[in-house]
Simulated assay, not measured.
Amino acid sequence: MSRAIVVHHVGGPDVMAFEEQAVGAPGPGEVALRHTAIGLNFIDTYQRSGLYPVQTPFVAGNEAAGVITALGEGVSDFKIGDRVVYQGQIGAYATERLAAADRMVPIPDGIDDQTAAAILLKGLTAYYLLFQTWPLAAGETILWHAAAGGTGLIATQWAKALGATVIGTAGSDDKTALAKAHGCDHVINYTTEDFAARVRELTDGRGVDVVYDGVGKATFDKSLDCLRPRGLLASFGNASGVVSIPDLMVLARKGSLYVTRPTGAAYLGQRPALLEGARLLFAAVASGAIKVQVSQTYKLADAAEAHRALEGRQTTGSVVLIP
């Protein structure tokens, strides 16, 4: 039997129940997993709250590392005992589960399970944003919101390694210091400074080439004011609420700007793309270009507490649940 966090109806963290569930044998193209570490991500809260609709009941979570315990028919790329990690498959908040084999990523030697579970979803998000949504070139300048968050700490280090000038935002002095220590050339405390005005000051009035914004509604309008003409705003999250643009002419008025809403499903849906992103991510960690910070761990049974901390902006870096 597996123990899992089940959402029977959407709502706040209290709707998550810790229950026993039977796990059968893997079907064709599936593997059975025993989880060793589970990643916590904002998408988990979006699904639990109903912002991203998922048919209930469902097991929460989208990212985990573990050991393969059984192979379904037709699975030839793995063997029992292999260490793997995955992201983007709902049902991760469990001690055991079945999952699609073609979404499994082998964990390289030298990467422990907690690190793998902490970085795959966030790191692959950073990968497609920095390498594909806007292929970042040395000498360009970026603004990354929530630079002290799990994705932010990975992405700003990676962007710096690529030769960019990195400006970050954070919501407290402690978080600005953390972001500065992880790749940011400049960090703006958005609770005490007008970040758009400060960005203009830091760039001598030009603006940045690209803004990466996982915060959403609270930062979107001023993010447009941070861009140089024909710059790009990559809005990849909704931590403060969903963004809407009632008047597209705002993009013309502010300099013929571009806006995109990328998702991992569109960039990483094919296995070769998934493996290439993971290869580059793990190589960056192994080289020291990305230093991983697992800031907190919670027992799986305490997932509701972890959600409250994440939504309350009480976390920095990556958070891992331990089965």
Rank of each mutant, 00 (worst) to 15 (best):
M1K: 10
S2H: 12
R3S: 14
A4V: 14
H8K: 15
H8S: 15
V10T: 15
G11P: 11
G11K: 11
G11R: 12
A17H: 13
E19F: 00
Q21R: 15
A22P: 03
A22T: 13
A25Y: 01
G27F: 09
V31T: 07
L33G: 02
R34H: 08
R48L: 06
S49L: 04
Q55E: 15
P57G: 10
A65P: 03
T69A: 11
G74W: 11
G74A: 10
V75L: 08
G81K: 01
G81S: 03
D82Q: 05
Q87D: 02
G88W: 09
Q89E: 14
Q89G: 00
I90D: 01
I90F: 00
I90N: 07
G91D: 14
E96K: 15
R97E: 05
A100M: 12
A100F: 06
G110M: 13
D113E: 15
D113H: 03
Q114H: 12
A117R: 10
A118W: 11
T125R: 02
L130R: 07
L130C: 04
W134G: 03
W134A: 11
P135L: 06
A137R: 15
A137T: 03
A138Y: 06
A138H: 04
E140P: 00
T141R: 07
L143G: 05
A146T: 00
A147N: 04
A147L: 02
A147D: 01
G149C: 09
L153E: 00
L153P: 02
K160Q: 13
L162V: 01
G163L: 09
G163I: 07
I167R: 08
G168S: 04
A170S: 06
G171F: 01
K175M: 05
A179E: 07
A179K: 06
A181I: 09
C184W: 11
H186E: 13
H186Q: 12
I188W: 11
Y190K: 02
T191S: 00
T191G: 00
T192K: 08
T192G: 01
D194K: 11
F195H: 05
A197T: 04
V199P: 10
G205R: 10
G205L: 11
V211R: 10
Y212D: 02
D213Y: 05
A218Q: 09
T219N: 10
F220H: 05
D221S: 15
D221T: 15
K222Y: 04
L224C: 09
D225L: 12
P229M: 05
P229V: 02
R230F: 12
R230T: 11
L233C: 07
V242A: 14
V243R: 06
V243P: 01
V243F: 02
S244N: 14
M249I: 02
K254A: 03
K254H: 03
S256I: 06
L257G: 00
V259K: 07
R261T: 13
A266M: 13
Y267E: 07
L268K: 05
G269D: 09
G269L: 07
R271M: 01
E276K: 15
R279L: 01
F282K: 06
A283G: 06
A286L: 14
S287G: 02
G288H: 14
A289D: 15
I290Y: 12
V292N: 08
A304R: 14
E305H: 06
G312L: 05
R313Q: 05
Q314K: 15
T315S: 13
T316S: 10
V319K: 13
I322E: 14
P323M: 13
